[in-house]
């Protein structure tokens, strides 16, 4: 029994180290006063300096770009989740013509290759005059997030007992009140997880962002961070500092919500 425990822990520690090392390297590079790649075996900088962060924060428009990222990701989450909630509720509760087709269609949109969408989306956003505007990104991100959100939320709604809604109806609630006062409060874990995913997607996306945004003051952070990695030379220090700034807030939220993650993601799948 003890031997087995030892083996299990050894395996887990090894996996954890493999998992952590690339991440720790980024941390180490961020605090080294150099732009070259860290080649030491242990991710501990010889000299700790905040130069990279100072450089990063003093870049023109940096805080504007941070703001852009927050705005885009926040709005995307709000809009995407709002629309997904109503749609997922309908898909879960009502039997209407086109329901199955609609659900399938949502899955099919996940198969559209990004390369096929890039040019038309560029044209669409340009025609709306939304290039270099956060609104353009919000529009695209929030709609592309919808299919996943709808499926995830639908799975959760399916597990809520119907009697609660019927009971509220008997209590005099209209359909909207039922949805707002009963269904949504009960679905908080699933909504939190869904929101986290739309936020992550919007916060991390850079291909569309790099395509739509050509002016530095309109950049989102991923575009900035990515621009440190050039074809011929890479400012690894700046890149690492930027990567930290981008990743840390997300990781914080991620870990705060990780308990919900397990339940909120699979409720639908398990119950079928």
């Amino acid at each position: 029994m003890r031997l087995r425990d030892l083996v299990v822990h050894a395996g887990l520690v090894a996996t954890s180290l493999l998992t952590l090392f690339p991440a720790l390297w980024v941390v180490s590079m961020a605090f080294r006063p150099s732009q070259s790649f860290d080649t030491s075996l242990l991710p501990i900088p010889e000299v700790i300096s905040l130069d990279n962060f100072r450089d990063l924060f003093s870049r023109p428009h940096f805080f504007r770009q941070l703001g852009n990222s927050l705005l885009v990701a926040g709005l995307t989450t709000a809009i995407g989740v709002m629309f997904s909630c109503t749609a997922a509720y309908a898909f879960s509760r009502f039997r209407f013509p086109g329901r199955r087709a609609g659900l399938l269609a949502l899955l099919v949109t996940q198969m559209f290759p990004g390369t096929l969408m890039l040019i038309p989306l560029y044209a669409l956003i340009e025609s709306l005059g939304l290039l270099n505007r956060s609104a353009g990104l919000v529009l695209v991100y929030s709609t592309t997030a919808i299919p996943f959100c709808v499926w995830n939320l639908k799975g959760y709604f399916d597990t809520l007992p119907r009697e609660l809604e019927e009971s509220a109806m008997m209590d005099g609630a209209g359909p909207f009140v039922v949805f707002w006062r009963i269904v949504l409060p009960l679905s908080r874990p699933a909504i939190a997880v869904t929101a986290l995913f739309s936020f992550l997607t919007a916060w991390n996306e850079f291909i569309l962002a790099a395509t739509f945004l050509s002016e530095e003051q309109a950049y989102t952070l991923p575009v900035t961070v990515q621009s440190f990695v050039g074809a011929f030379s890479t400012e690894w220090g700046h890149f690492a500092a930027g990567a930290l700034v981008v990743s840390l807030p997300v990781m914080a939220v991620f870990f705060a919500l990780q308990r919900h993650l397990v339940g909120g993601l699979t409720a639908g799948g398990v119950k079928g």
């Binding site: 007992p161 009697e163 609660l164 019927e166 009971s167 509220a168 109806m169 008997m170 209590d171 005099g172 609630a173 209209g174 009963i182 409060p185 009960l186």
Partner: peptide, 20 residues
């Protein structure tokens, strides 16, 4: 007439108490 306008009260098998 929708349920809420029927002046009817109901007790459900599962009680359907609002958990929140």
């Amino acid at each position: 007439v929708p349920a809420r306008d029927r002046d009817v009260a109901m007790v459900f098998q599962s009680y359907a108490l609002y958990p929140h």
